[in-house]
Measured scan of single mutants.
Amino acid sequence: MPVRRGHVAPQNTFLDTIIRKFEGQSRKFIIANARVENCAVIYCNDGFCELCGYSRAEVMQRPCTCDFLHGPRTQRRAAAQIAQALLGAEERKVEIAFYRKDGSCFLCLVDVVPVKNEDGAVIMFILNFEVVMEKDMVGSPAHDTNHRGPPTSWLAPGRAKTFRLKLPALLALTARESSVRSGGAGGAGAPGAVVVDVDLTPAAPSSESLALDEVTAMDNHVAGLGPAEERRALVGPGSPPRSAPGQLPSPRAHSLNPDASGSSCSLARTRSRESCASVRRASSADDIEAMRAGVLPPPPRHASTGAMHPLRSGLLNSTSDSDLVRYRTISKIPQITLNFVDLKGDPFLASPTSDREIIAPKIKERTHNVTEKVTQVLSLGADVLPEYKLQAPRIHRWTILHYSPFKAVWDWLILLLVIYTAVFTPYSAAFLLKETEEGPPATECGYACQPLAVVDLIVDIMFIVDILINFRTTYVNANEEVVSHPGRIAVHYFKGWFLIDMVAAIPFDLLI
């Protein structure tokens, strides 16, 4: 008679799926529990143990900040960024110097990925580790590398530091407007667009060049630039800015003055950032001319202004700041037409079709709590990747769950009947059967004279019903998954307890 339990259901295979997918890609990662103190490590794979030199037993239950890997060259700011990422709910990448158990130093890129439950609360953290440099290539500990984003994938490793954006290309926007319009339909740009040429040739750093990471940081200074100062900065030398009595002219307006920039070969870094931020506020060169004239017309309804409409929906549905990093990277690809469009465009503009998908598509409701890094690593669709929660398995109709209350009560009843059979069957065979043979035949009273025979008949009927119930009862397979398919249940029961239950259900007393 089957006594099969499996009270692990309803099970959740999400954690096993993450481990299996990460292991298949030869990654070095740990999984931490966000619900406990210090976000203790609950799993670390073999790749991480080989990377740091510690065994799994030495890593388990330690804080996922990996303070046991810190050393003299470990930056405090990087460690603080990892700790801050564990307090938030967004994906974050941090470069930090770690030390192995043998004392060797290596520069590592740590990717902190939160995993949320159905309520939107962070319950786990996945920390992925990628070695960037070994100890002989690690720089000085005073050099802070965590304020910069990861290198873009479309640049060669040897040319990542030679990417320079020439400031004269930004200063000569109005001069290039006529050349853009003359391109017409034969050019790649839309009317009114501004073409910015980027020099990728390796050259020595000069005062006129600005690194790509500095251009990325310009967006942080746009908020500090007032509207009046932006307007004066875009007017140009024809209309000098008016300053109040006793007030000095704005240095932001002076930063885009061609006369002032041409007199000296070098520009201050602050002026460069502010000038680029001011130019980015204009949607095209037409807006710059309109600002000089004193009238700013409404933005025209053409394809170039609607190019950012799908980007707005993608940004609203993005799951991490990696989408913004990807957008900034692609927006700086050289030799393309940049349409400086305000994100607050007309909502009635139709979304044009684009061959290049900048932001990841909208994630469906079932995966809105899973970050983009987890979705990318697992390579699963929205119909396959579940949320991290207890999910009731989908069972067929008329199927009994093996952990249901009805099955528990039924098993206790069958257990009592088995005990009765084990006690009274030998007793009936030894004593009652002998008395029946010696006594007179009682054929007239039937079952009324033999109450134990009636009980034995009921017990046999219950055993037959138990066999039928076992054909529709779920079970737990070797992978700790609840199986509810009727065919698989029948095959599993035939290979197991079916023969024993059938022999126990045969009414031998009635056959004798």
Rank of each mutant, 00 (worst) to 15 (best):
P2M: 04
V3N: 14
R5C: 07
A9D: 15
Q11L: 11
Q11C: 14
F14M: 07
L15W: 12
R20Y: 04
K21M: 08
K21L: 06
F22D: 05
G24T: 15
R27G: 13
F29Q: 01
I30L: 11
I42F: 01
Y43E: 01
D46P: 06
Y54R: 01
Y54P: 01
S55I: 01
A57W: 07
E58H: 05
P63T: 13
C64H: 01
C66S: 01
R76F: 12
A80H: 08
A80P: 01
Q81V: 13
A83K: 08
A85G: 05
L86R: 01
L87W: 13
A89R: 14
E90R: 13
E95Y: 05
A97H: 15
R100I: 01
R100T: 05
L107H: 14
C108K: 01
L109I: 08
V110G: 01
K116H: 14
L127D: 01
V131T: 15
V131S: 12
E134M: 06
E134R: 14
V138D: 14
P141Q: 15
A142N: 15
H143G: 13
D144S: 14
H147I: 01
P151H: 12
P151D: 14
L155K: 09
G158M: 12
A160D: 14
K166A: 06
L171F: 15
R176G: 05
R176M: 06
S179E: 06
A185W: 03
G186A: 12
G187N: 12
A190N: 05
G192H: 05
A193W: 01
A193L: 01
V194A: 06
V196R: 01
V198S: 05
T201P: 15
A203K: 13
E208W: 03
L212C: 06
T216P: 10
D219P: 06
V222N: 09
G226V: 08
E230W: 06
P237A: 14
S239I: 07
A244L: 04
L248K: 03
A253V: 14
S255E: 13
N257V: 14
P258S: 13
R269I: 14
T270M: 07
R273N: 07
S275R: 11
A277N: 13
A277S: 14
R281K: 15
S284F: 07
A290G: 07
A293S: 15
P300G: 07
T305C: 07
A307H: 13
H309D: 14
P310T: 10
R312C: 14
G314D: 09
T319H: 08
T319V: 07
L324H: 14
R326S: 12
I330M: 14
K332F: 01
K332D: 14
T337K: 14
T337W: 14
L338P: 15
F340S: 15
F340R: 14
F340L: 15
L343E: 05
K344P: 10
P347S: 05
L349Q: 05
D355C: 15
E357Y: 14
I358N: 14
P361I: 09
R366W: 08
T367F: 10
H368I: 11
T371G: 07
T371E: 01
E372G: 12
K373S: 04
V374D: 05
T375P: 05
L378N: 03
L380G: 04
A382S: 04
V384E: 04
V384I: 07
V384W: 09
L385P: 10
